[in-house]
Design a protein around this nucleic acid. Structure first.
Lengths: 240, 240
DNA sequence: AGTATAAGACCGACCGTCGGTCTGTTGCGG
DNA sequence: CCGCAACAGACCGACGGTCGGTCTTATACT
């Protein structure tokens, strides 16, 4: 039915298609047949590229947070930054990354995360973060402690908790952003700002930082304003 | 095959049986047929009591943390305790509750929680905690702030995070305890103690408490010692 | 007490659907 | 024009769930 594509292109198409279905129906309720119907390919085609439905999910996880993990590792590798600067730089980059895309993809991602569908997807994201991101965060913490700006007796636990809370926060915020976008409710934006303030304080506590060391709020304020403008002037049709 | 039982007894039997299967094989990999074979009942019998496999899971969640939620609500209702006392009392009770049972059920629970099987179960436990426990915790926090012992500008966020971390911690610790029990590794007990110290500090930060206000470590030390003795003297066969 | 009756607890053959397999067919690069 | 990557789609076993029927037991009536 479709032209022949390179494996990369086909995989990308399958991922896009299935992501949209997962967002609407959830992972469990989306069948492989749904995916191949929507993508216009056959069962054989699907299983040529993916050994199982779950293998597809792994690819999706990789795609969803692979970028952010890459940003993280890149920053960590730099030796011209202090631990605190690295931490802030990462927050800045991730926030900017999400901020730029947020209008296009927030509806989509929030559907993906909300309502308790896609439990497996979320749990795989946590796993990925714990395995690939937490160890790197631990290095930053050790550096920070050495530099004297971080204060904790528990680098390992702090790193794991930091990462876990970070992912949690990202999902919750994405959800709220979309809610705000949909209902055009100023109050939700306040909720988001409050959540960010709390989050900032929490992360500072975990890392044993001086109050106000982390810069979370500022950037998000920018995004919130962007959202606000979007809310007032009306928004483009959204994803796809 | 079996005698006739009251619905309550039958449900209890089904829950016990399925819990053991879930612990070994995981929720997804345990079929309804597995359950009814093991329980010695028929398909019709099962679906007479439960409308679906997932309905059974809901019952299990209720049973697993219903007790602890009940303890919580009971404590909150008392007006002879300060917020801090309530918080500590709850930690004490839950720890004692788990501590007493830990040798019998830790193997079981840890199997249930570990390895990424039973993802759905864990997520349902979080949901339950968020819906039923977090609002109550928020009340305690408000009381604490009023009394001047708690300090936070974010009672709502603090409550949700507190509860979420609490559940997380319980699962992780259960897992580690069993590991320690199995491998008779003193080092793991140290890991657990460190985790508890970190946890205590984290909870105190969230609630804005003075250092050392919460009593987490002490009680767990007792349990750890009990575990230690068990480890040295050998343990009873375990659950069932 | 003995029997009719009805409700509750349970049985197991059966069904539709799912993830996954297998035997091909196509079509493009060398 | 051949060989292999890329795909098609009929097919399979297993799964969760349904349904008509059976058996047990408590109750009602005589």
């Amino acid at each position: 039915m479709n032209k022949k594509l390179t494996p990369q292109e086909r995989k990308g198409q399958i991922i896009q298609t299935s992501l949209q279905l997962f967002a609407v129906k959830g992972y469990d309720n989306t069948t492989v047949n749904n995916i191949i119907d929507e993508a216009g390919i056959s069962k054989g085609g699907f299983y040529y590229h993916y050994s199982s439905k779950e293998a597809l999910l792994e690819d999706i996880v990789q795609m969803l947070i692979g970028d952010m993990a890459a940003i993280f590792e890149e920053i960590v590798a730099r030796d011209d930054l202090s631990a605190l600067e690295k931490t802030n730089e990462y927050i800045r980059r991730v926030t900017a990354y999400k901020g730029d895309k947020i209008v296009e993809v927030s509806a989509f991602l929030s559907e993906l995360y909300s309502g308790g569908k896609n439990v497996l997807l979320e749990s795989k994201i946590y796993d990925f973060a714990r395995k690939h991101v937490a160890p790197v965060m631990k290095q930053i913490i050790l550096q920070g402690v050495e530099e004297g700006s971080f204060k904790t007796e528990f680098p390992e636990e702090a790193a794991e908790t930091y990462v876990k809370l970070f992912v949690m926060q990202q999902q919750e915020i994405t959800d709220l952003f979309y809610e705000a976008l949909q209902e055009r409710d100023e109050e939700i934006l306040e909720t988001i700002k409050r959540k960010y303030k709390f989050f900032q304080k929490l992360l500072e506590d975990i890392l044993g930082l001086e109050k106000g060391s982390l810069v979370v709020e500022e950037e998000m304020g920018g995004t919130a304003e962007r959202m606000g403008r979007q809310m007032i002037w009306g928004s483009d049709p959204g994803l796809k």
